[in-house]
């Protein structure tokens, strides 16, 4: 495994950190094997890998949807399995298919998840509209039921939920999967602006092109192991697609 920890990264403490993170499921499958990675505030990390490589497992471990077999998934220095509620305050999550309450409007969905994230004190519903505008959802669709939204619009709603939560870390599980190029481009612009605000972003994706475009650091996960990890600077002039395919086919 090539590793270049903290190369080119900020010297502040990592917001998201996997330390010797290992997950073996009850059926014996080793989903993640000794993963080490760090995501610093204001940086984006893209995990590339085939289906079943362990990307979603990593995100699940950070959210403490599952407990690690060994190691720790830390958020702001706190192991997720030690205090799940605390780490969920600090993390926003956007899934591959943002599934919200289809009979609720965009504003109602945003309002519910904002309050659920702990933003009930001093929270105004108007903020929802501001955030929806920011993610590119115009006023005429704010009060429309989600079931009338396209997938791209729902993904924007998902990122709006992450924005309104105001968490310092964002976990994205293949967020551009199934989006048309324009929607994917807009989505990446949004992520870019969130990174610029100082949020740490960890994204799992198949999309090498988008990963290269957004990520400050890229890791390739294969069969639960992080087989390659490089910074944007290190990849300058390299063919990421070739590197990825080489790793996948076992040439590297």
């Amino acid at each position: 495994m090539e590793s270049d920890k903290n190369n080119g990264m900020s010297r502040t403490a990592p917001m998201l950190e996997a330390v010797n993170l290992t997950k073996r499921y009850d059926d014996g499958v080793l989903a993640l094997d000794d993963l080490n990675l760090s995501v610093f505030p204001g940086r984006a990390y893209a995990m590339l890998g085939a289906n079943g490589a362990g990307k979603t497992t990593t995100i699940n471990l950070f959210l403490n949807f599952i407990d690690p077999t060994e190691g720790e998934a830390r958020v702001a220095g706190v192991a997720s399995h030690r205090d799940p509620l605390l780490i969920r305050e600090k993390v926003s999550y956007v899934s591959e298919n943002v599934m919200l309450y289809m009979n609720f409007s965009a504003v109602q969905n945003l309002d519910f998840f904002a309050r659920l994230s702990g933003r009930s004190k001093g929270f105004r519903r108007d903020e929802c509209r501001d955030v929806l505008r920011r993610v590119g959802l115009e006023d005429d669709c704010h009060d429309r039921k989600l079931k009338t939204f396209s997938k791209g619009m729902r993904q924007k709603c998902g990122i709006a939920i992450a924005v309104i939560k105001g968490a310092p870390a964002i976990l994205l599980d293949e967020p551009t999967s199934g989006l048309d190029p324009k929607a994917a481009f807009e989505f990446m612009n949004l992520l870019d602006s969130l990174r610029a605000e100082g949020r740490a972003i960890l994204m799992s994706t198949h999309d090498i092109f988008r990963a290269r475009e957004i990520a400050d650091d890229i890791g390739i996960v294969k069969e639960g192991r992080l087989v390659m990890q490089r910074s944007r600077e290190e990849l300058e002039g390299e063919d990421l697609e070739k590197i990825y395919l080489d790793y996948m086919s076992g040439l590297s």
Binding site: L63, F65, L85, L86, R88, E89, V91, S92, Y93, S95, N97, V98, M99, L100, Y101, M102, F113, L116, S117, G118, G158, I161, K165, L171
Partner: peptide, 14 residues
């Protein structure tokens, strides 16, 4: 099944 449970529990709700 709809995926809302996952999103809900990515928030600090017991």
């Amino acid at each position: 099944e709809r995926g809302t449970l996952r999103l809900t529990f990515s928030n600090p709700i017991p």
